[in-house]
Design a protein around this nucleic acid. Structure first.
Lengths: 237, 237
DNA sequence: CCCTCATAAATGTCAGACAATTAATGAGAA
DNA sequence: TTCTCATTAATTGTCTGACATTTATGAGGG
């Protein structure tokens, strides 16, 4: 598995090559979480490149948070356990970057966000627990503060919806959706809510919590549609 | 040169530091797509570090496909235009990694996939075009081939659902969902479909295309629920 | 037993060199 | 003039060797 010349093309970017090899070892299970990679010197010898090149490869992996490094006697590069939190952060960052760099318009972003969230409605209604309701009601209370800045209002909105998604009890859903919502946040932050808009959002939020408490997923879906339309109206005004 | 030690903490990891600085320049708009960064030598002088360190920083950014490099006289590092394809690939990779490394069970993954997809149903019904239907019918034809391996059947299934999501006409939805579906593919690949299971899936697919053609989103949602249950039965058998 | 210090192993950083690639330049021939 | 082609300069890619820094471990003395 080591020196098979699987390189189809000529030598372009050795460090990328080596990073990819190690990456595959992690993906296919040869290296599992918290395993220690060989030292940089050993890797350089094993792959027949200089230590500088190995280091560049390792930095690539570190940038994807596939590995972490520790200095000192028992140091080295270790395979990271990919946590849901990590994946969430990484996805949110990608989403944010993509949306800011490509000038996605707010209507498209909104539509995507609410469409995804809508898919969670029934599952959330089925699996929600008390503490999810508590978290959402807490955010609603914050939103009622008229002194709240638009930005903080938006942040509270994100927290509200994150709690809703968490209520599905499905971690994959949680991180996928939470990342999407957070990625869209910069766009939402550009909105200016009039008090009337806020009141509309808040009363919808309250109705949503009630629907969730009563475990009526279909009603939750309808409320989400209202909320989407309300948000779009605010965005386009 | 400008090594005024105004840094609050000890710099552990200069290359990460510099990568972050450049990253911010890209995020806040000081550097826009296709801008050329200063040469490695200039960067090393500007930040008061060696060229090796600068290179490690650049590799980190390259690993996130924030920059690309070109050799030669007019070469250098250039800010990447973040395309939807890039983001999609990155997300799919993250999703795949997360799911394989954390041993997400197939039921959870399935549930997440269908929940997300369900959210697209109505939008897809509204915005679908003829070529989406064509693509989906083409995949259905493939799925009817009894010689098809389980793996190819699964790949065709992914293509079918990707076409469905594309039918929403919303690029953000497309890449979010396509990445999720592809991330879950390794798990789905472990399923073995009996012919009876395939027949059930195929007839559901046909009904879904019909519902999409007729633009009846609510029916599409119901069919998706059936498909989810069918898939879960296959998975647990 | 505890404290201190030397040692070793590993990553982090640096400086300088050379190789490879590529666009621009300029000289020479038609 | 215009085309061709070798030269040149700029830039990334790689290698080598060295030193700095961090950290666990163990030996020695109190």
């Amino acid at each position: 598995m080591s020196d098979n010349s699987t390189s189809p093309q000529k030598h372009t970017d050795l460090s990328a090559d080596i990073a990819e090899r190690i990456r595959q070892d992690i993906l296919n299970g040869s290296l599992v979480a918290d395993d220690r990679l060989p030292s940089e010197s050993e890797l350089s010898e094993a792959h027949g490149v200089s230590r500088a090149t190995v280091r560049e490869a390792l930095k690539r992996l570190a940038a994807q948070s596939l590995i972490r490094t520790k200095r000192g006697a028992t140091g080295g590069a270790f395979v990271n356990r990919q946590t849901f939190e990590d994946a969430y952060a990484q996805m949110a960052s990608t989403a944010k970057l993509l949306i800011t760099l490509n000038e996605v318009d707010i209507a498209t972003a909104c539509q995507a966000r609410f469409a995804l969230e809508r898919g969670c409605a029934r599952l959330a209604a089925k699996n929600r627990q008390e503490h999810h309701l508590d978290a959402m009601r807490h955010e609603i209370d914050r939103q009622k503060d008229p002194e709240l800045s638009d930005e903080d209002f938006c942040a509270s909105d994100v927290a509200f919806h994150r709690a809703l998604v968490d209520a599905t009890g499905n971690p994959v859903l949680s991180w996928q959706l939470a990342a999407a919502v957070e990625g869209i946040e910069p766009l939402m932050n550009m909105l200016t809510y009039r008090q009337r808009d806020r009141d509309a959002v808040i009363s919808l939020h309250e109705a949503m919590v009630d629907a969730l408490e009563a475990r009526v997923g279909s009603r939750l879906e309808i409320l989400m549609d209202y909320l989407r339309d309300q948000t779009l109206r605010t965005a386009l005004s």
